[in-house]
Design a protein around this nucleic acid. Sequence first.
DNA 1: CGGTATCCTGCCTGATACTG
DNA 2: CAGTATCAGGCAGGATACCG
Lengths: 110, 110
Amino acid sequence: MEKSAGGCPVEAAVKLIGGKWKIVILYQLVTNGPKRFNELRRIFPEVTQRMLTLQLRELEEDGLINRKVYHEVPPKVEYSVSELGQSLHQVLLHIQDWGLYYLDQKAAKN
Amino acid sequence: MEKSAGGCPVEAAVKLIGGKWKIVILYQLVTNGPKRFNELRRIFPEVTQRMLTLQLRELEEDGLINRKVYHEVPPKVEYSVSELGQSLHQVLLHIQDWGLYYLDQKAAKN
DNA sequence: CGGTATCCTGCCTGATACTG
DNA sequence: CAGTATCAGGCAGGATACCG
Protein backbone atom coordinates (compact mmCIF):
# COMPACT_ATOMS: atom_id res chain seq x y z
CA MET A 1 0.00 0.00 0.00
CA GLU A 2 1.28 3.34 -1.04
CA LYS A 3 0.64 6.72 0.44
CA SER A 4 -0.72 9.03 -2.19
CA ALA A 5 -2.26 12.06 -0.59
CA GLY A 6 -2.56 12.92 3.05
CA GLY A 7 0.91 13.22 4.53
CA CYS A 8 2.87 13.05 1.30
CA PRO A 9 5.94 15.30 1.68
CA VAL A 10 5.76 16.38 -1.94
CA GLU A 11 2.18 17.51 -1.60
CA ALA A 12 3.02 19.28 1.64
CA ALA A 13 5.86 21.11 -0.06
CA VAL A 14 3.75 22.04 -3.08
CA LYS A 15 1.10 23.44 -0.79
CA LEU A 16 3.65 25.88 0.60
CA ILE A 17 5.59 26.84 -2.49
CA GLY A 18 3.02 26.06 -5.17
CA GLY A 19 1.47 29.52 -5.30
CA LYS A 20 1.60 31.33 -8.59
CA TRP A 21 4.55 33.56 -7.67
CA LYS A 22 5.92 32.05 -4.49
CA ILE A 23 8.92 30.28 -5.92
CA VAL A 24 10.23 33.32 -7.77
CA ILE A 25 9.63 35.55 -4.78
CA LEU A 26 11.43 33.14 -2.48
CA TYR A 27 14.24 32.75 -4.98
CA GLN A 28 14.66 36.50 -5.09
CA LEU A 29 14.74 36.86 -1.32
CA VAL A 30 17.02 33.89 -0.77
CA THR A 31 19.60 34.84 -3.36
CA ASN A 32 19.51 38.63 -3.22
CA GLY A 33 18.62 39.26 0.40
CA PRO A 34 15.82 41.24 2.03
CA LYS A 35 13.66 43.41 -0.17
CA ARG A 36 11.11 46.11 0.38
CA PHE A 37 7.61 45.90 -1.00
CA ASN A 38 8.16 48.31 -3.86
CA GLU A 39 11.49 46.74 -4.68
CA LEU A 40 9.68 43.47 -5.28
CA ARG A 41 7.12 45.30 -7.37
CA ARG A 42 9.85 46.68 -9.58
CA ILE A 43 11.56 43.28 -9.84
CA PHE A 44 8.29 41.59 -10.84
CA PRO A 45 6.29 44.16 -12.77
CA GLU A 46 4.05 41.39 -14.13
CA VAL A 47 2.76 40.62 -10.64
CA THR A 48 -0.14 42.81 -9.59
CA GLN A 49 0.13 44.68 -6.32
CA ARG A 50 -2.79 42.72 -4.97
CA MET A 51 -1.26 39.35 -5.84
CA LEU A 52 2.13 40.36 -4.48
CA THR A 53 0.49 41.28 -1.21
CA LEU A 54 -1.49 38.04 -1.09
CA GLN A 55 1.47 35.83 -1.90
CA LEU A 56 3.65 37.60 0.66
CA ARG A 57 0.94 37.18 3.29
CA GLU A 58 0.64 33.48 2.58
CA LEU A 59 4.38 33.00 2.66
CA GLU A 60 4.45 34.82 5.98
CA GLU A 61 1.60 32.75 7.41
CA ASP A 62 3.40 29.57 6.40
CA GLY A 63 6.53 30.79 8.15
CA LEU A 64 8.67 30.99 5.04
CA ILE A 65 9.35 34.71 5.18
CA ASN A 66 9.51 37.44 7.80
CA ARG A 67 7.87 40.82 7.51
CA LYS A 68 9.60 43.59 9.38
CA VAL A 69 7.96 46.96 9.71
CA TYR A 70 10.12 50.01 10.38
CA HIS A 71 8.03 52.70 11.96
CA GLU A 72 9.57 55.57 10.09
CA VAL A 73 8.41 58.32 7.82
CA PRO A 74 8.15 57.33 5.07
CA PRO A 75 7.18 53.85 6.20
CA LYS A 76 9.42 50.92 5.38
CA VAL A 77 8.60 47.24 5.27
CA GLU A 78 11.22 44.66 4.61
CA TYR A 79 10.63 41.08 3.58
CA SER A 80 13.25 38.45 4.23
CA VAL A 81 13.39 34.67 4.31
CA SER A 82 12.92 32.97 7.64
CA GLU A 83 15.03 30.04 8.75
CA LEU A 84 12.50 27.72 7.18
CA GLY A 85 12.57 29.75 3.98
CA GLN A 86 16.35 29.65 3.99
CA SER A 87 16.19 25.86 4.16
CA LEU A 88 14.69 26.00 0.67
CA HIS A 89 17.91 27.42 -0.73
CA GLN A 90 19.14 24.15 -2.22
CA VAL A 91 15.75 23.33 -3.66
CA LEU A 92 15.57 26.72 -5.34
CA LEU A 93 19.07 26.37 -6.73
CA HIS A 94 18.17 22.97 -8.16
CA ILE A 95 15.10 24.43 -9.79
CA GLN A 96 17.28 27.14 -11.29
CA ASP A 97 19.81 24.57 -12.48
CA TRP A 98 17.10 22.58 -14.15
CA GLY A 99 15.71 25.75 -15.73
CA LEU A 100 19.13 26.44 -17.23
CA TYR A 101 19.39 22.88 -18.49
CA TYR A 102 15.95 23.12 -20.02
CA LEU A 103 16.66 26.44 -21.73
CA ASP A 104 19.90 25.01 -23.10
CA GLN A 105 18.14 21.96 -24.47
CA LYS A 106 15.54 24.12 -26.09
CA ALA A 107 18.13 26.45 -27.59
CA ALA A 108 20.07 23.48 -28.95
CA LYS A 109 17.01 22.39 -30.90
CA ASN A 110 17.05 25.63 -32.93
CA MET B 1 21.92 45.09 -13.72
CA GLU B 2 20.04 42.02 -12.82
CA LYS B 3 17.81 39.89 -14.93
CA SER B 4 14.45 39.56 -13.27
CA ALA B 5 11.94 38.27 -15.75
CA GLY B 6 12.40 37.36 -19.37
CA GLY B 7 14.94 34.57 -19.63
CA CYS B 8 15.20 33.80 -15.93
CA PRO B 9 15.76 30.04 -15.52
CA VAL B 10 13.65 29.92 -12.38
CA GLU B 11 10.69 31.52 -14.13
CA ALA B 12 11.16 29.20 -17.09
CA ALA B 13 11.12 26.19 -14.78
CA VAL B 14 8.09 27.42 -12.87
CA LYS B 15 6.24 27.88 -16.13
CA LEU B 16 6.69 24.19 -16.87
CA ILE B 17 6.20 22.62 -13.47
CA GLY B 18 4.16 25.34 -11.79
CA GLY B 19 0.76 23.95 -12.68
CA LYS B 20 -1.48 23.09 -9.79
CA TRP B 21 -0.85 19.32 -9.97
CA LYS B 22 2.15 18.98 -12.24
CA ILE B 23 4.79 18.40 -9.61
CA VAL B 24 2.90 15.62 -7.86
CA ILE B 25 2.01 13.98 -11.18
CA LEU B 26 5.62 14.13 -12.32
CA TYR B 27 6.81 12.85 -8.98
CA GLN B 28 4.46 9.91 -9.24
CA LEU B 29 5.57 9.03 -12.78
CA VAL B 30 9.26 9.51 -12.06
CA THR B 31 9.35 7.44 -8.89
CA ASN B 32 6.74 4.78 -9.60
CA GLY B 33 6.98 4.39 -13.34
CA PRO B 34 4.38 4.69 -16.12
CA LYS B 35 0.75 4.94 -15.13
CA ARG B 36 -2.57 4.71 -16.91
CA PHE B 37 -5.11 7.47 -16.82
CA ASN B 38 -7.40 5.84 -14.31
CA GLU B 39 -4.49 4.77 -12.17
CA LEU B 40 -3.58 8.41 -11.80
CA ARG B 41 -7.19 9.20 -11.00
CA ARG B 42 -7.15 6.67 -8.19
CA ILE B 43 -3.83 7.96 -6.88
CA PHE B 44 -5.09 11.56 -6.87
CA PRO B 45 -8.80 11.40 -6.14
CA GLU B 46 -8.80 15.11 -5.28
CA VAL B 47 -7.88 16.03 -8.85
CA THR B 48 -10.88 16.28 -11.14
CA GLN B 49 -10.85 14.28 -14.34
CA ARG B 50 -10.89 17.46 -16.35
CA MET B 51 -7.90 18.93 -14.53
CA LEU B 52 -5.97 15.69 -14.75
CA THR B 53 -6.51 15.67 -18.50
CA LEU B 54 -5.51 19.31 -18.84
CA GLN B 55 -2.37 18.98 -16.73
CA LEU B 56 -1.32 15.85 -18.60
CA ARG B 57 -1.86 17.59 -21.92
CA GLU B 58 0.26 20.54 -20.87
CA LEU B 59 3.00 18.30 -19.55
CA GLU B 60 2.92 16.46 -22.86
CA GLU B 61 3.03 19.68 -24.89
CA ASP B 62 6.01 20.85 -22.87
CA GLY B 63 7.78 17.58 -23.58
CA LEU B 64 7.92 16.44 -19.96
CA ILE B 65 5.86 13.30 -20.39
CA ASN B 66 4.98 10.84 -23.15
CA ARG B 67 1.49 9.62 -23.91
CA LYS B 68 1.29 6.18 -25.42
CA VAL B 69 -2.00 4.88 -26.76
CA TYR B 70 -2.55 1.14 -27.02
CA HIS B 71 -5.24 0.43 -29.56
CA GLU B 72 -6.89 -2.39 -27.68
CA VAL B 73 -10.28 -3.19 -26.32
CA PRO B 74 -10.68 -1.88 -23.72
CA PRO B 75 -8.54 1.11 -24.63
CA LYS B 76 -5.32 1.73 -22.76
CA VAL B 77 -3.30 4.92 -22.45
CA GLU B 78 -0.04 5.02 -20.60
CA TYR B 79 1.73 8.12 -19.35
CA SER B 80 5.44 8.09 -18.68
CA VAL B 81 8.15 10.67 -18.16
CA SER B 82 10.18 11.71 -21.16
CA GLU B 83 13.92 12.20 -21.04
CA LEU B 84 13.35 15.82 -20.13
CA GLY B 85 10.90 14.79 -17.43
CA GLN B 86 13.39 12.28 -16.09
CA SER B 87 15.93 15.08 -15.77
CA LEU B 88 13.68 16.51 -13.08
CA HIS B 89 14.26 13.50 -10.86
CA GLN B 90 16.78 15.20 -8.58
CA VAL B 91 14.68 18.34 -8.29
CA LEU B 92 11.65 16.29 -7.30
CA LEU B 93 13.63 14.34 -4.73
CA HIS B 94 14.90 17.60 -3.24
CA ILE B 95 11.36 18.89 -3.01
CA GLN B 96 10.37 15.68 -1.26
CA ASP B 97 13.34 15.96 1.11
CA TRP B 98 12.37 19.48 2.00
CA GLY B 99 8.78 18.40 2.49
CA LEU B 100 9.96 15.79 4.98
CA TYR B 101 12.12 18.32 6.76
CA TYR B 102 9.22 20.74 6.92
CA LEU B 103 6.80 18.13 8.27
CA ASP B 104 9.37 17.13 10.88
CA GLN B 105 9.87 20.71 11.99
CA LYS B 106 6.14 21.20 12.24
CA ALA B 107 5.70 17.97 14.18
CA ALA B 108 8.49 18.97 16.56
CA LYS B 109 6.61 22.11 17.46
CA ASN B 110 3.69 20.10 18.83
C1' DC C 1 -11.32 2.98 -20.44
C1' DG C 2 -10.18 7.43 -21.35
C1' DG C 3 -11.59 10.88 -22.28
C1' DT C 4 -15.10 15.65 -24.24
C1' DA C 5 -18.77 19.05 -23.68
C1' DT C 6 -21.11 22.08 -21.00
C1' DC C 7 -22.18 25.05 -17.52
C1' DC C 8 -20.92 27.55 -13.53
C1' DT C 9 -18.18 29.47 -9.75
C1' DG C 10 -14.39 31.88 -8.01
C1' DC C 11 -9.78 33.47 -8.40
C1' DC C 12 -6.77 36.70 -10.91
C1' DT C 13 -6.03 40.89 -13.53
C1' DG C 14 -6.09 45.79 -14.48
C1' DA C 15 -7.35 50.18 -13.46
C1' DT C 16 -8.31 53.49 -10.33
C1' DA C 17 -9.05 55.59 -5.91
C1' DC C 18 -8.00 56.05 -1.15
C1' DT C 19 -5.26 55.76 3.58
C1' DG C 20 -1.86 55.73 7.66
C1' DC D 1 5.94 54.01 1.14
C1' DA D 2 3.12 50.22 1.64
C1' DG D 3 -0.54 48.98 1.38
C1' DT D 4 -6.35 48.37 1.23
C1' DA D 5 -10.91 48.91 -1.50
C1' DT D 6 -13.57 48.36 -5.36
C1' DC D 7 -15.30 46.93 -9.75
C1' DA D 8 -15.32 45.16 -14.54
C1' DG D 9 -13.67 41.46 -17.27
C1' DG D 10 -11.26 37.08 -18.19
C1' DC D 11 -9.72 32.78 -17.51
C1' DA D 12 -8.60 28.78 -14.49
C1' DG D 13 -10.78 25.25 -12.14
C1' DG D 14 -15.01 22.38 -10.35
C1' DA D 15 -19.30 19.47 -11.20
C1' DT D 16 -21.88 16.91 -14.02
C1' DA D 17 -23.21 14.60 -18.16
C1' DC D 18 -22.19 12.35 -22.27
C1' DC D 19 -19.24 9.62 -25.92
C1' DG D 20 -16.08 6.37 -28.91
